[in-house]
Design a protein around this nucleic acid. Sequence first.
DNA 1: GCCAACGTTGGC
DNA 2: GCCAACGTTGGC
Length: 138
Amino acid sequence: MAHWLFKSEPSTWSWERQVEAGAKGTFWNGVRNHLAKQQMMAMKKGERGFFYHSNEERAIVGIVEIIKEYYPDHTDETGKFGMVDVKAVKALKNPVTLADIKAEPSLAEMALVKNSRLSVQPVTDEEWAVVMEMAGKK
DNA sequence: GCCAACGTTGGC
DNA sequence: GCCAACGTTGGC
């Protein structure tokens, strides 16, 4: 199963608000980048992704699940972009920070490290397993 | 269709 | 707050 990473600034859309949205989830709108769009188009219902806080926090804080596959974003007046719906699954016991990720050799190829500006990223099964391991420790 | 200029993002 | 990296725009 494919895995993903959703990046958001806490001041715009935080993990706390995602949790508050509950089981019915929310739509992940506002993506205006074609690479990020391609990632979303590849997502399947039931797949999971990390929820990453950028800027102030710079850490993976939780896990979300895709509950609705790619559909048009009505807030995009150009009609080019779409979005998916996600719901919060659970918070990580220990948030995995960007510094942690950079300190871990097996995660050196993560999109988060290589292309930090991409707002929706693919995560390999290996990377997913390593991050989950790190999240459970300490 | 190329590429310089500009705006935005995000780590530091 | 600064600045590098990237994407987008627009002139040619």
